[in-house]
Design a protein around this nucleic acid. Sequence first.
DNA 1: TGCAGCGCAGAGGTCCGACCACTAGAATAC
DNA 2: GTATTCTAGTGGTCGGACCTCTGCGCTGCA
Lengths: 257, 257
Amino acid sequence: MPKSDTHVTMRVVNHIRSMLETGELQPGDRIPPERELARKLRVSRASLRTGIGYLAAMGVMDVRHGVGTFVENGPPEIGKSSLGLLGALHGFQSWQMFETRRILESELAALAAERGGQQHLAAMSEEVAEMYATVEDPIEYLIHDVRFHRVIAQASGNPILAALMETITSALYDERRKTAERSRDLKQSADLHREIYRAIRSRDAGEARSVMERHLTMAQSAQDVEAAAPAPSPNGRRAKAGAGAGAGAGKKLSASK
Amino acid sequence: MPKSDTHVTMRVVNHIRSMLETGELQPGDRIPPERELARKLRVSRASLRTGIGYLAAMGVMDVRHGVGTFVENGPPEIGKSSLGLLGALHGFQSWQMFETRRILESELAALAAERGGQQHLAAMSEEVAEMYATVEDPIEYLIHDVRFHRVIAQASGNPILAALMETITSALYDERRKTAERSRDLKQSADLHREIYRAIRSRDAGEARSVMERHLTMAQSAQDVEAAAPAPSPNGRRAKAGAGAGAGAGKKLSASK
DNA sequence: TGCAGCGCAGAGGTCCGACCACTAGAATAC
DNA sequence: GTATTCTAGTGGTCGGACCTCTGCGCTGCA
C-alpha cells in the first residue's frame, strides 16, 4: 500500500470510508463530481483521483466516463481482477486454483444445506432443469452451471465466502470456456448437479459437501485432459498447455465489467 | 474496473503485466523512474501514475516515496487491504469472517499434514515453544500465534489458499489485538496449538483439521465474550474507529520485506 | 405527431510543467 | 572515526488547460 495517514490521497480514502461506515453513502449512490469534491476536501483533483482510483481498484467504487462515480452496487468482490496479475507474478498453478475452489465450494455446499432458504432451493432446481435442457449446447450449459454454483454461494449465507469463490471462479472461467466447447458427458455433469441439489434440499450437509467435492474433482481432471489434448483445428485458439518456466496459471481473465 | 483497452492508463498496466509474464520483471525488481518510463511509454506521468497506482492497490507493485517503485517481493496478498472497505460497504459480520477463517485454516491444516516439509515442522515446533514461553505476555504470545498459523499456510503448498487466509486474518487482527491484552487461558491455547502441531507431524490430516476447527471455534467464542463484556469506550458501532489518527486496515503485520 | 439527428452541458480522462517531501548516500565538520 | 549536513534523485501534490465520452433536450424533417 503506497499510502499512510499523512498522505493527501489517504485523506480521500478515509473520507469515503467514513461516509460508508456511517451510512452516509449507500451502494448505488453517486458521489459529487471530481472538481466539486476536490474543492470540498481541499485537495487537488489529481490527488482526489488517485484516491478514487484506489477505491475503484478494490471494487468499492465504480467510475463511469462521462457519467459519474458511484458506490459499487453489485455483490461483493474481493480482488477479483487482481488474481490474474498476482498469478502471473507469483506463478499460481492451475491445480492450486482448482484445489482452492474445491475447498471453498464444498464448504459452501455444506453451509447451503444447513441454511438455504426455499427461494434458493427453487433457484437451484431451476438451474438444474436448465442444465438438463441444454446438455447439447455447452456454451449455454456453462451459463447455468455457473449460476447454479452462484446460487449455492448465496444460500450459504456467508457473503465473504461467496466473494472468495467468485474470485477464484472468474479466474478459472476463461480456461473453462475454452474446453467447454468440446465438453462431453454433460449429461453426467447434470446428474451430479442434481445430486448436489438433492443433498442440499434434504439438509444433508455432509452429503452435499462430498458430492460437490466429487463433482469438482471430476471437472478438474476432465478439463486437464481436454486442455492437454491438441486443440481442434476449427478453433484457432491454442490450449495453454504447460509453458516452460513461465507462469502457467490464469492468463487473461476479463477485467471489463 | 474503470479501464478498458482503449484507455491510456491500461496501456501501462498491460505493459507491466506482459513484462511480468515474460519474466522480464522479477519480484523485487525496480522499475525505471516515473519520468523516464512515462517518456518511454509515450504517456504522461499522470497516466503512468494512475496505472501504477492500480497495480499497487492490488499488491503487485510497491511504491516507496523517495526511493522508487518495485515489483512486490513478499508473499502474495489478495485484496488484503480491501476487505475492511468491502466489509463497511456490504456489512460483513464478524461471525462470517470467523467462519471463513475456520474453513480456510482447517483445510490448510489438513493439507499441511499431507505436504508439510521438515523445515515447516521445525518452524511450527519453534513457535509452539515460544507460545509456551510467553503465556504471561499476551502481546508477545499473539505474535507467535500468528506466525504459527502462517507457517501452516506455507506448509500447505497452496499459496492461493495461504493468501486468502492472510486476507481474512489481517482483517480480524485489529479486533484480536484489542482482546488479546486481556486474554486468559493462554496455556490452554498453547496446548491446542501443540495438538495441531502433533497432528500435522504425524501426517494425520483429519485430526489436524478437526483440532484446528476446535481451536478456532474456541477462539471465536472467547473473543466474542471478551469483546462484549469489558467495553472501555461505549460506541454503538462496530469496533474500528477510535485510537490513532489513522485507522487503516491491517498494516504492520508482515514479516518479510 | 413521431422520431431521427444535432448539439450542448457536464462528467471523467489526459496532459503539462512546476514545485514539494522524502530517502539514501556523499560530502563535510568535529 | 563518527556525527552532521548537503545534495541528487525519486515519488507526491498541485492547478489549470484541454480532450473524450455520455445523456438528454432541442431541432427539423417526414
